[in-house]
């Protein structure tokens, strides 16, 4: 026995569309289900954002500060020699690295930072070190305060890794300036 099913053109199109739409909707639900499950658990922990565009202004201020520290150290090392020159050039290189890291993080949002030095340290090594130690403390304080205001975790982590070493700069420079070990470890912030 042959059986033929006859359908009108209108009914056929509607049915095919429904079929395709059903399959697409089903597929979308399947694909999205694990995604929703992941978001539900993440929302419970209230994870902080990795980046936040609202942080850019504060981070540009940090970039500007580091750029000015670079200019300051370039002036400071002018009259130094041997180990003193090597040591100060090392710290200069650190600040160049910080400026590059912040500029890289901000990418197209980075401003053109100032290249004006914050001071013109001159005189004896002890005198230069004392002025630079003060500037290091101030820079670490600026960055630490910024960490307390920005929301993005990646930027906070980057700044924390900078402050950790700038605190070392400050203490080491204070020792070179003549402070005692107990006085040099006392923090200004």
């Amino acid at each position: 026995m042959d059986t033929h099913q006859v359908e009108s053109p209108d009914m056929s199109m509607t049915t095919r569309r429904r079929l395709i739409a059903s399959l697409l909707a089903g597929g979308a639900v399947v694909a999205a289900a694990p995604l929703f499950a992941g978001h539900a658990s993440a929302a419970d922990n209230a994870a902080p954002p990795h980046r936040d565009a609202a942080d850019n202004a504060a981070l540009n201020a940090c970039l500007d500060r580091e750029s000015r520290m670079v200019a300051t150290y370039r002036k400071a090392i002018a009259g130094l020699t041997e180990n003193d020159l090597i040591a100060m050039t090392l710290i200069l290189d650190h600040h160049i690295a910080y400026a590059h890291a912040l500029k890289g993080y901000l990418a197209v949002e980075a401003i053109t930072p100032s290249s004006a030095p914050l001071a013109s340290p001159t005189g004896s090594l002890a005198g230069i070190a004392r002025q630079l130690a003060t500037l290091e403390d101030q820079t670490a304080t600026i960055h630490t305060n910024t960490i307390g205001t920005i929301k993005g975790l990646d930027a906070a982590t980057l700044l924390a890794s900078i402050v950790t070493v700038e605190a070392r700069h400050a203490a080491a420079l204070e020792l070179i300036a003549g402070a005692s070990p107990i006085a040099a470890h006392a923090t200004a912030y």
Partner: peptide, 24 residues
């Protein structure tokens, strides 16, 4: 965020002590 800054302040103090130790 505010607590992150507090932790960095405490860490900065240890960093200073670490630098002083290294110099000793």
């Amino acid at each position: 965020p505010a607590l992150r800054a507090d932790l960095v302040r405490l860490g900065g103090r240890s960093s200073r002590r670490s630098a002083v130790s290294a110099q000793l």
